[in-house]
Design a protein around this nucleic acid. Structure first.
Lengths: 316, 316
DNA sequence: TATATTTATGTAACTGGTTACGTAATTGAT
DNA sequence: ATCAATTACGTAACCAGTTACATAAATATA
């Protein structure tokens, strides 16, 4: 298929389907050639039964089909007299399937076909430089570790995070700083007095007191903000606060980029440790903090009602 | 799938299907992730239309689907406004499909997705030692040259031909020699006087005159015979004749094995060339003779009415 | 020029799987 | 001991392709 060399890997699904079709249509002919009274699609079920009786669900798990699929196939095999069914005495839900006499006869007569098909395919595999059989297995393993969706999602994040720029706060971002924070605070909690003060006057409450604010830009637009507030505390130099990312810009890794940048800033300002307060209902935020290296800590009184978790991190 | 390491290559079809399913279900999610108003199954059709308008049949050939499949997909795309259709003026049967404005917009917005998916898959391919993409292509090429059915059939022949034994004629095979020949002669032609003579008395008419007869045994049963008749001719030493294989034993390469053995015998007897007569309606026989190395020749008078082709081969 | 063949396409029915859902039996938790 | 959750499995409806068939237009042939 010349076509698929043009489309690129995007179409690997379609290409796989086409190859699968080609192989399975031939399979049907091969069964006819050997005059075996089996349908190719029965093969996985038949094969498992060759090594002993099994229930519908067991077979399904073995061969990687859904149980209704096995149920249907077993139904067909029953009608052809290849297998027999019997309810389990101990557990009346279970339907134990076993090969009938006819099925066992097929099991022996099919041996030659096994041999020939195996040899034919082995021969093909030796004629290729990339072993399809092994390649499939490798893909099964890789996809089991991390499915294609997640892999693509990671690539997406990576690409989009390249479009994100972290810049220092200027008065031009005053509105963004206020609105982005207001947005998440008022959806999850209620704006408190302390919020209004710092959001209305970031210069006075944050910057002038030796803190910092960073803004994340996506395609020029401010979509995230984060503040560093100077603390007057024996253990912690700065508090990470007022972190907000627009829901419209989710999934672009912006929180992580902002976090990394603000920690760098804290270090540059001579800080030795960063503290923060949050709430456990904000699960993505908490997991982000862990990812950034924060650990749970205790015992600081907070001016915010909404806080039920406190975290800190040592800058190395 | 541990299962498929037990079954052997026989189940490559099922295994391919499973992998295909895994990939395509993820594909659907990926399209959602990018918020593209396309169904994954539309992709091949969509892709071809990106490089210009096409008719149903053209698309089907390009992407390797059946035309009804394309017809259905185009129908769905029409309803979603992704493409538009227009009957060809010059040929009113042809239905020319082109991307609509919306379709073109999708074509540009899908670029990022292409990139990410490609990268994700490329990354997987570098993590494997057997390149699935290339392996698929190699299989497509191999199956194009010779499909799986034919490959398996050849293996079957090979295996079965190992069960065939070629032995020298003894009087115990007198009946087989007569019956096997009678069978094919009377189905295609009519028994002639010369037939009766040699079939009733092979010793007198063939062996005692310096000829030979070989018998093919399959699981102990005589299923094929072939005679070498001493000729009194300046050019040809022996005539290959009375070759017969039971229809029940067809497809086991018996004709070829008998032919090879009889030529070896002719050489062992000091012959320098072998001659034969046949009829062109016996196509498998003629092609067997060519396969054995015989070439058409002319001009010998035959005692048999049924002969309309003469062939010969030099023994080296 | 009339007729047979080929080509382009659509529709219907089939195929080999799936998910969704319902029911009965078993298991687990209070 | 009871009630909720889980498990086994069948049935129905769906899905993405297929083959088989019908029809109309174009082309080839006598």
């Amino acid at each position: 298929m010349d076509f698929y060399n043009k489309t690129g890997k995007m179409a690997i699904g379609s290409r796989l389907r086409l190859l699968t079709d080609k192989v399975t249509t031939d399979a049907a002919e091969i069964y006819k050639l050997y005059d075996v009274d089996l349908q190719p699609k029965w093969f996985p079920v038949f094969y498992t039964l060759c090594s002993g009786d099994s229930t519908i669900t067991e077979i399904a798990q073995q061969i990687g089909h859904s149980h209704p699929s096995v149920s249907k196939i077993v139904g067909e095999m029953l009608r052809k007299g290849v297998v027999s069914e019997k309810k389990d005495k101990a557990d009346k839900r279970r339907n134990v399937i076993s090969l009938s006499k006819k099925g066992k006869a097929i099991a022996t007569s099919i041996q030659d076909q096994y041999k020939d098909v195996n040899e034919a395919i082995e021969e093909m595999l030796t004629q290729t430089t990339n072993d399809l059989w092994k390649a499939i297995e490798e893909w099964e393993i890789l996809l089991d570790q991390k499915n294609l969706l997640r892999r693509v999602h990671e690539k997406k994040k990576l690409r989009e995070s390249k479009k994100v720029k972290i810049v220092d706060y200027t008065p031009a971002y005053a509105k963004a700083f206020k609105e982005l924070n207001k947005e998440w605070i008022s959806t999850y909690f209620k704006m408190e007095a302390a919020d209004f003060k710092s959001l209305e006057n970031p210069k006075g409450y944050i910057l002038d007191k030796g803190g910092a604010i960073l803004v994340a830009l996506y395609e020029g637009e401010p979509v995230g903000v984060c503040a560093l507030i100077k603390m007057n505390h024996p253990e912690y130099s700065y508090e990470l606060a007022k972190m907000a990312v627009s829901p419209k810009a989710q999934g672009k890794n912006i929180g992580y980029l902002l976090g990394k940048a603000i920690l760098k800033k804290a270090k540059a300002l001579g800080g030795s440790s960063v503290y923060l307060e949050s709430n456990t209902i904000l699960k993505p935020a908490i997991s982000l903090y862990y990812k950034l290296g924060f650990q749970k800590t205790f015992g600081e009184p907070s001016p915010y009602e909404r806080c039920n978790i406190q975290m800190a991190l040592k800058l190395k």
